[in-house]
């Protein structure tokens, strides 16, 4: 027994002398590697390539890796392209505001006034069900809705509210905005309702017991606590609206060109360098929007 006890520690303490093994210290690297490598290869490199190509020289049907600022000057000098940037920003802000305006009351109702979990789930599922239809088909469904002989005009005329059909409904900036609001408003409702449902009921009771009016409760408790939800919703909506092109091309009759539409056209005509410039502009806009929003709320902590 003694002999064995003397021998084993020497034999077994040798490998452990330099502490825990490689796998124990770096096991998480093996778990992270596939995802990180995937993202670097297929996310970071393509985006970097886009930035790089935006400085290449564009010839009629090809690009050459000779660095130039020509595509950039064309972009900012052109009324059409710079106008598209402004239009994109305008539509984004309008849609963002409207999704918040229309979405918040619904989120308030689902998240705070419905206290039965089952009803809450049913209402949220009801909001998500339209997503089971293809996005593009949902966009196209607005055409028979908004057209001169569309459902809305028929309805309004039938009710005797208007005599003449409203023509500005379809193939205008308005129709693009209506379409986008309907498609993206749910992304605003979901996060806000989620945050509101997390608020403890006793908080409202306490406030009411202290004699706070519903308006004060909303201003002092409900709204501040729902703010992270608003920000997360705003990030979702911004990301999707800024990169949009399908809704615009389906509902504006190609009259409303967003940055996304221009990228699609440029790629279609093999103007890669120019498409890349617009891509970089869009990236910068997006990055600043998200950075500002993330200043307001820490996404990691809210999970």
């Amino acid at each position: 027994m003694d002999g064995a006890a003397v021998e084993t520690p020497i034999a077994s303490s040798v490998p452990s002398r330099d502490g825990p093994g490689f796998f124990q210290r770096h096991g998480h690297l093996l778990l992270l590697a596939p995802g990180v490598i995937w993202m670097i290869l297929f996310l970071v490199i393509p985006l970097a390539m886009m930035v790089y190509v935006s400085f290449w020289t564009q010839t009629t049907f090809a690009i050459k890796p000779d660095l130039t600022l020509k595509s950039w000057t064309t972009f900012f000098a052109s009324e059409t392209y710079f106008g598209a940037l402004l239009r994109t920003l305008r539509i984004w802000l309008t849609v963002l505001f409207l999704t918040f305006l229309f979405g918040y009351p619904t989120a308030l109702y689902i998240g705070q006034f419905v206290r039965n979990k089952t009803v809450q789930t049913i209402l949220l599922v009801a909001c998500v069900i339209p997503f089971w239809t293809s996005f593009l088909i949902r966009v196209l469904a607005w055409r028979p809705m908004l057209g001169k002989e569309g459902a809305i005009n028929i309805l309004l005329q039938g009710l005797g509210i208007i005599d003449q059909p409203i023509e500005v409904l379809l193939f205008t900036e308005l129709s693009v905005i209506i379409g986008m609001v309907q498609i993206y408003v749910v992304f605003m409702v979901g996060p806000i309702a989620f945050m509101l449902a997390r608020i403890d009921d006793s908080l409202f009771e306490a406030a009411r017991d202290l004699g706070a009016s519903p308006m004060t409760i909303f201003r002092k408790i409900t709204f501040p606590l729902s703010l992270p939800g608003v920000v997360v919703g705003a990030i979702f909506v911004s990301v999707m609206v800024l990169g949009e092109f399908a809704t615009a091309s389906a509902l504006s009759g190609r009259k409303v060109n967003l940055l996304g539409n221009i990228i699609v056209t440029q790629v279609g005509s093999l103007k890669w360098a120019f498409a890349a410039v617009i891509g970089v502009v869009l990236t910068v806009v997006m990055a600043s929007v998200i950075t500002v929003l993330l200043r307001v709320v820490n996404l990691r902590r809210e999970l």
Binding site: A4, A5, V6, T8, P9, S12, S13, S16, G19, P20, G21, Q24
Partner: peptide, 14 residues
């Protein structure tokens, strides 16, 4: 420090 179990060093053994 170290942990010995029946004479064997198991300090870093999982």
């Amino acid at each position: 420090g170290q942990i010995h179990l029946n004479g064997e060093d198991v300090t870093y053994r999982p």
